[in-house]
Design a protein around this nucleic acid. Structure first.
Length: 595
RNA sequence: GGACCGGUAGCUCAGUUGGAUAGAGCAUCAGCCUUCUAAGCUGAGGGUCAUUGGUUCGAAUCCAAUCCGGUUCACCA
């Protein structure tokens, strides 16, 4: 049990004993004591004052007195200032915690709870390579899955590949017309980049055709419809749906190039999935429930044959579910897929990591499923994240003004190399070890940068500022870890003298602060899970690393004042390293043994 | 126009669900390497928490209105 939980429980018991009134954890707050006051944890008394009809001073003193008397192993001192009861945790409690857990690599993680969660993320289109926005999505999805696992959930990671549709046909048409038979092999270009190039090419040429038509006096709307390229793309989509062999063959070939490219990128950034769904295989799902919904009177048909759902009671609009020609729309497919996912895996909750531009869509999806009486409706959760923007404005993949994911990774790794060489600390490293280190640092910096911000906030990505390796960054944390490992390696050589100390040493302020911070890890994991927010972890690790660095400069570990202190500090350092490694893992970031 | 999200230091962000004198990083300035990794540490300056009103012992946090920015409201996906 964590200190905060213990304090809550014990305080409730004491209040019951003292005043014969029962309270719950929500009736009063427990927080960390502000540094300017004495103590470690604080009970805020104001909310109790009313129901107990006592002054905060009297209440604080009576409660403080009782807590110390009944639990001398946990609390050593108290003081009351205004409505705040500040309690000091005993050194023995913390030393005991340290001794029990310093070498436990799964400290802070929670036991398996038997519940299943699905996390859907990444969801790429196969007409272009991954960009910076996808990176935020991938890192978020991966990290949330890891955080849920650490809380005891059984997690299924899924990906829905948008491998069909007009946008794919655009790349295909452009390649047919302008490609001269280019392949990844012939050009040496990564498959997804090659296909993306033709997607941009399509839009360039299309724009020219539209302008030409407009100059001939045709209206803009009309020109956009009549442009030969667009007509060709639409014809191709029809041919695809009719399984025309040449089109299917081309589609298979070009998608294959893209998948090869994605595999390289995913492997590099450390993304993977337990189950991949392909839209080409699922887009026809969901039509059956429309019939059912019509029969039950939940859906209605308009004169032209299109099928709708009325959401005006909920303050929303009417929403289309089947076109007048009987084909399904995005929403219908999504409902079908949601149902399939549920039937296959029966998750208690299904988390969709999707950008906030789809907030409305996801809200409607959940509502429609609910109206249709789908059992999984309540489990649908949209983990919405803000767009990643550049200082120059929004990224537009149609115009090719995106930060490409592969380029970004290359740049981060190159920067890691540059910084490392400049510091000149790695002269004895093997070449393969160096390559590994640059990758660890570069990717670590990027993941940390994208995950340290609250997901729902949109963020500006400044390429120059983002590769700063100082301060609140991944490499700062990685450096702290490598530093501890270095100390531990050397300490192991110096001394095998492990004699047990008779008297426990008294903790110095920084030692105490560090152990208290380490103790909070389990609660942080819990909080990150309930909020589905990796930035909680990132902020915690940074705080922990910073606290350790202060401790490190202030107190010598190897040359401690005496043998007891040395052992104590080695334990603290070991546990700090374990928690850093474990928490960075939750963000998908590796830590180097030396750097 | 309706709905949803955001506005905190020059910049990028925290702020424990209503608590004590609002905190970090970057940038600026001043210090610290003959001792465990200086990618580090210590300190200084920098704030009308968008604005106004309300709720109460107490508001960056809750409510209302206003201003600014964003997203969305397709027989596109």
């Amino acid at each position: 049990m964590t200190i905060v939980h213990t304090l809550q429980t014990v305080a409730i018991e004491s209040l019951q004993a003292l005043y014969n009134q029962s309270f719950t954890e929500k009736d009063f707050q427990v927080s960390q004591t502000k540094p300017e006051f004495e103590g470690n944890y604080t009970v805020v008394l104001f909310s109790l004052v009313k129901s107990l009809k006592k002054s905060p001073e009297v209440l604080g003193n009576e409660l403080g007195e009782k807590l110390i008397k009944d639990h001398p192993g946990v609390f050593s001192k108290y003081n009351v200032i205004k409505g705040f009861l500040n309690l000091t945790i005993t050194d023995n409690y913390l030393l005991d915690l340290l001794n029990k857990n310093y070498n436990d690599v799964s400290f802070g993680k929670h036991a398996i709870n038997g519940k299943r969660m699905m996390v859907e993320y990444s969801s790429p289109n196969t007409n272009k390579p991954l960009h910076l926005g996808h990176l935020r999505n991938n890192f978020l999805g991966w990290s949330v899955a890891e955080i849920l696992k650490a809380n005891g959930y059984d997690v299924i990671k899924t990906c829905i590949v948008n491998d069909r549709g007009i946008h794919i046909c655009k790349s295909m048409i452009a390649w047919q017309l302008f490609g001269n038979g280019e392949t990844p092999e012939s050009t040496g270009e990564k498959g997804d980049h090659l296909v993306g190039k033709y997607y941009v090419r399509f839009n360039d040429e299309y724009k020219k055709q539209v302008e030409e038509l407009i100059s001939k006096g045709i209206s803009k709307d009309e020109a956009e419809k009549q442009a030969p390229l667009m007509q060709a793309a639409q014809q191709m989509l029809l041919d695809w749906e009719n399984h025309k062999p040449e089109v299917i063959a081309l589609w298979n070939k070009m998608n294959g190039w893209v998948y090869d490219g994605f595999d390289v990128t995913y492997k590099r950034i450390g993304s993977d999935f337990d189950k991949t769904y392909y839209e080409s295989k699922t887009y026809l799902l969901g039509k059956d429930f429309v019939q059912e919904g019509l029969q039950k009177g939940i859906l209605f048909k308009k004169e032209d044959g299109s099928v709708w759902i009325d959401l005006t009671d909920e303050g929303l609009d009417e929403k289309l579910l089947l076109r007048s020609d009987g084909t399904s729309v995005y929403m219908t497919q999504d409902i079908g897929l949601a149902k399939q996912k549920y039937e296959e895996y029966k998750p208690g909750k299904s988390i969709y990591v999707i950008g906030d531009e789809q907030n409305y869509h996801m809200k409607v999806l959940k509502l429609v499923c609910k109206k249709l009486g789908m059992p999984f409706a309540d489990g649908i959760y949209h983990l919405s994240y803000g767009m990643v923007e550049l200082p120059t404005g929004k990224m537009k993949s149609r115009e090719g003004t995106v930060v490409d994911a592969d380029d970004m990774v290359d740049e981060m790794i190159a920067t890691a190399k540059h910084h490392t060489e400049e510091l000149g600390k790695v002269k004895d490293f093997e070449s393969h070890e160096l390559q590994e280190l640059y990758k660890t640092l570069g990717l670590g910096a990027m993941k940390f940068y994208l995950l340290r911000v609250d997901p729902k906030k949109r963020m500006v990505f400044n390429p120059e500022e983002s590769i700063d390796f100082h301060g609140f960054t991944g490499p700062f944390v990685q450096y702290t870890y490598a530093r501890i490992q270095s100390v531990l390696r050397k300490a192991g050589q110096w001394s095998k003298d492990n004699r047990q100390s008779q008297t426990d040493p008294e903790l110095l302020p920084l030692e105490k602060e560090l152990i208290l911070t380490l103790e909070q890890y389990s609660q942080i994991i819990e909080q990150a899970s309930t909020e589905l927010n990796p930035s909680v972890i990132a902020n915690y690790i940074f705080h922990l690393a910073k606290t350790f660095n202060s401790f490190y400069t202030e107190h010598s570990i190897a040359n401690a004042e005496n043998e007891e202190k040395k052992q104590l500090r080695l334990h603290i350092a070991t546990m700090t390293a374990n928690v850093i490694k474990s928490s960075m893992q939750l963000l998908g970031i590796k830590v180097p043994e030396r750097m």
